[in-house]
């Protein structure tokens, strides 16, 4: 395995508020890293920094050995090599599902429409939505929209997929269909960085877990160890908030 993402001493501040405090970690090719932590711990910000959506105050981020330009106004084409899916449905409302998928490959990658459409249809088929290709986003359920959003990121052939709480805004019965898609991607060996509150899912999908709190990585480890024998008191408390015991 080779290192694909490497974050070194990343710091992110909003004025006085430090959101990310000297974060360093790396992701191997084909590895699934799941980041958990309490609200406001900086986990979403971390993903946004990786994708160049936030300016960082200090530190460096490398993708496959190349430094990512994190100044908002200039990118060096590295950010689109990382696909991102957001919490809220971010499909383009004025375009059909198929057009949502083909827009970026055609105008950013200058690929041929016919070829992109064929690929888009094949991907839609895989997530069980080929019948929706001519629908508009408003005609889809939340779970369907998120599946399309994942496909829209995949069709850019990203080397790394960043998933930012993609099920947090969904009705419970729709969470499963979206997470199944992600589990399948993990089985295919996709490199993914996932922020989630779904602990069971995290455990099932992760190769490695990171626990973020107060802008720092407090604990990391393999899922089994991470969930069964947390080393820090903070992680133990955090994990306890997800279990219910009848008194």
């Amino acid at each position: 395995m080779s290192e694909i993402v490497s974050v070194k001493n990343l710091c992110k501040r909003y004025d006085e508020l430090t959101v990310l405090d000297n974060i360093s970690f790396s992701v191997q090719k084909g590895e699934v890293v799941v980041i958990v932590g309490p609200s406001g711990c900086g986990k979403s910000t971390l993903l946004r920094c990786l994708n160049g959506l936030e300016e960082i105050q200090d530190g460096r981020i490398f993708l496959d050995g190349e430094k990512i330009e994190t100044n908002r106004n200039k990118t060096n084409g590295l950010c689109e090599r990382m696909g991102m899916v957001f919490q809220s449905y971010d499909l383009f409302p004025h375009k059909t599902i198929l057009q949502n998928l083909t827009l970026a490959p055609i105008i950013v990658k200058k690929r041929k429409r016919k070829e992109v459409e064929e690929e888009a249809l094949a991907l839609l088929e895989r997530v069980g939505l080929s019948s929706k290709k001519d629908s508009y986003p408003r005609q889809l359920s939340g779970g369907q929209k998120q599946r399309v959003a994942i496909v829209r990121a995949l069709i850019m052939h990203p080397e790394v997929l960043l998933l930012d709480e993609i099920t947090a805004a969904l009705d419970p019965e729709m969470v499963r269909e979206v997470l199944d898609v992600v589990l399948n991607l993990a089985r295919e060996g996709r490199t993914m960085l996932i922020v989630t509150h779904e602990m069971q899912f995290a455990r099932a999908v992760a190769d490695r877990m990171l626990f973020l709190e107060g802008g720092k990585i407090v604990e990391e480890g393999e899922p089994e160890e991470f969930f069964e024998h947390p080393k820090t008191e903070r992680l133990r408390q955090f994990l306890q908030t997800f279990t219910y015991i009848k008194e």
Binding site: E80, M84, F86, A104, A153
Partner: peptide, 14 residues
């Protein structure tokens, strides 16, 4: 227009 529209466009490399 929600900010996410700008952000997801950017994330796609536009």
């Amino acid at each position: 227009i929600p900010a996410i529209q700008y952000e997801s466009s950017r994330a796609l490399g536009l």
